[in-house]
Computed example of a mutant assay.
Amino acid sequence: MLTKKGKYGLKAMLHLASHPPGEPSLVSDIAEANNIPKKFLDTILGELRNAGFVNSKKGKGGGYTLARSAQNIRVGHIIRVLDGPLAPIQCASKTSYRRCDDCFDENHCGVRLVMLDAREALAAVLDNRTLAEMRAAAESNEITLSYVI
């Protein structure tokens, strides 16, 4: 499940993507426009800055901007930075795999096999959708299915 941190991070990134490249946005403006608590947003934007998704500038004319084009930012990458792996359980994760303590044979574990499928379906959508596509979908109020299960 997407946490509030992940959802707020996506909203903030969409906000930044809606501005001309290089035009900074103040944290207070992003928070107010998206109904996000400012203190929480400060933390989220700090994590996104550390991960290389946004740049920040202090002082007059400062604020946050996207560090690269919205066409080059994948939604799945943002979520992983803020919320961690996409897999619903660790034994289905590609980046944070850990065998379950209670599993005798993970190759025949029905729970794991279904969660692997769920992880792959989620990654197929989130890793193939850019921030620019997400913004365009929001502006046109249209969602396109870009995967096949």
Rank of each mutant, 00 (worst) to 15 (best):
P37M: 03
I36L: 06
S25F: 01
E106T: 05
N128C: 07
F53A: 04
R68K: 15
P85H: 13
G22L: 04
I44E: 09
L86F: 05
G6P: 06
L116I: 15
C91V: 13
A12E: 04
T43G: 06
V75Q: 12
G52Y: 06
D105R: 13
E23M: 13
N35G: 03
P21K: 08
M13W: 02
K94G: 08
V114Y: 08
Y97E: 06
A33Q: 13
L122E: 07
R119D: 14
E139Y: 02
I149Q: 11
N34G: 01
A33I: 00
T95D: 15
R49K: 14
K57F: 06
E32Q: 11
L131G: 11
L26P: 03
C103F: 04
L66G: 00
I149E: 14
D102H: 11
D127Q: 07
D29Q: 08
M134D: 09
G63M: 05
L126P: 06
C103Y: 00
R129L: 14
N50W: 02
A121F: 09
I89S: 08
A137Y: 05
R135S: 13
A124D: 14
A12K: 05
D101K: 13
R49A: 12
L10H: 08
G59C: 07
A12H: 01
N141F: 12
A70K: 14
H77C: 00
S93P: 12
E139T: 00
C100H: 10
L14C: 04
R112I: 15
K5C: 00
G84I: 06
L10W: 01
I30R: 04
R49S: 12
N34P: 00
S18Q: 08
A118R: 11
A67P: 01
G6Q: 03
A87R: 04
L16V: 02
S69V: 01
V81W: 05
A67H: 05
E47R: 09
T43W: 04
N35H: 09
S25L: 05
A124V: 01
T43R: 10
D101P: 01
N141H: 14
Y64Q: 10
G110P: 06
P21Y: 07
A87N: 08
P37I: 00
E32Y: 02
A33H: 10
T95R: 12
T130S: 15
A132C: 00
L26A: 13
G52D: 05
L131I: 05
R68T: 06
V75M: 08
A124K: 11
N55R: 14
I30G: 06
S140K: 13
L145H: 04
C100I: 01
